[in-house]
């Protein structure tokens, strides 16, 4: 060992012994940081729930469960019932799901079982990604200026009152918006079906259609259910696009062409103008309901999805 090496080594060791205690201190500090970050993230989510609960306390006290069943939304008379908005949210979300499911499923099946590569598959994937990236405000804007006139002319032909805005318009926009998510959920679900199961089907001489109908769909049924649930979770909390085309009418819609209001859009429209504690509290309670529904929907959907993945 040369002289230079020895001196270098000594220098190193001296340095290290000095470092000893400061290393353990930094080590402890680092772990403390990590735990603090994790606890902070957890507290934020808990904090959201607690704040919503406190914020809506007045309204919960005043109306109780009636809040959900009552359809009177009359700020001047200090009467607040969320039923019109709950119905507005449920009807637009369900309609949107109904419209988007065939498209999402078809594209997932097409991309994962028919077209695995090539320009068309590239274009489709690219389009789906692009659709997912468009901000919801732009969907709403486009819906307001392009879709609303189209729906209006249809309404005229069918003999409805030509609002243009309403449940149907909101559902179409929502459907377009959730197609990317629903489609990627569907691909995920199809991926969960074991390859050998599919191949066994083909080996028996089944056509592609029969393999899909008799093997893939039954196997994936749990996943399909949770995928639909999660897609619903996406749709029901959507705010801007719906707000711009639903018509903002605080009564229960009579048919799918009636203007209505959704839970998210009534908050968006009235929150800054809400005068009086009870009014604000009622809007916050609608927010609380949104939070709780999203909790339930996502918890069930994720649980099923995870179980499917483990099963595989």
């Amino acid at each position: 060992m040369t002289q230079a090496e020895i001196s270098c080594k000594d220098y190193r060791l001296k340095n290290l012994d000095k470092q000893g205690s400061s290393i353990t201190r930094k080590e402890t500090l680092f772990r403390f940081f990590l735990v603090t970050a994790a606890i902070t993230s957890v507290s934020i989510v808990m904090g959201i729930f607690i704040s919503l609960l406190f914020g809506s306390w007045k309204s919960i006290n005043e109306f109780g469960l009636n809040f959900i069943w009552s359809s009177a939304w009359n700020p001047a008379a200090r009467q607040f019932g969320a039923l019109p908005f709950i119905i507005g949210t449920l009807s637009t979300s369900f309609l949107a799901l109904l419209i988007s499911i065939p498209f999402s499923f078809a594209s997932a099946i097409y991309l994962s079982l028919y077209l695995k590569s090539g320009w068309l598959s590239g274009l489709l994937k690219f389009s789906v990604e692009l659709l997912a990236g468009i901000p919801s405000i732009i969907y709403g804007f486009w819906g307001l200026f392009v879709l609303v006139p189209i729906v209006r002319s249809i309404e005229i032909k069918l003999g409805f009152i030509p609002y243009g805005v309403g449940v149907a318009t909101a559902s179409i926009i929502l459907a377009i918006m959730i197609i990317p998510f629903a489609s990627s959920m569907a691909s995920e679900v199809i991926k969960l079906v074991p390859q050998d199961l599919k191949e066994a089907g083909f080996a028996m001489g089944a056509t592609r259609f029969e393999v899909i109908k008799n093997i893939i769909l039954p196997y994936a049924s749990g996943g399909i259910f949770s995928g639909i649930l999660l897609a619903f979770g996406r749709a029901f909390g959507e705010t801007m696009a719906v707000t711009m085309v639903i018509g903002n009418s605080n009564i229960i819609p009579k048919n799918i062409f009636s203007p209505a209001n959704s839970m998210a859009s009534v908050i968006a429209n009235e929150f800054t103008e809400a005068r009086g504690d009870l009014y604000l509290s009622s809007l916050i309670e609608i927010g609380l309901l949104l939070f709780i529904i999203s909790f339930i929907v996502n918890a069930i959907g994720n649980r099923i999805m995870k179980r499917m993945t483990v099963k595989k």
């Binding site: 959201i48 909390g237 998210a264 908050i267 929150f271 927010g287 949104l290 939070f291 999203s294 918890a299």
Partner: peptide, 13 residues
């Protein structure tokens, strides 16, 4: 859960 919370709710909070 947080990922699924509607963005308007986060605005309220």
């Amino acid at each position: 859960l947080l990922q699924g919370v509607p963005s308007i709710v986060i605005g309220i909070v």
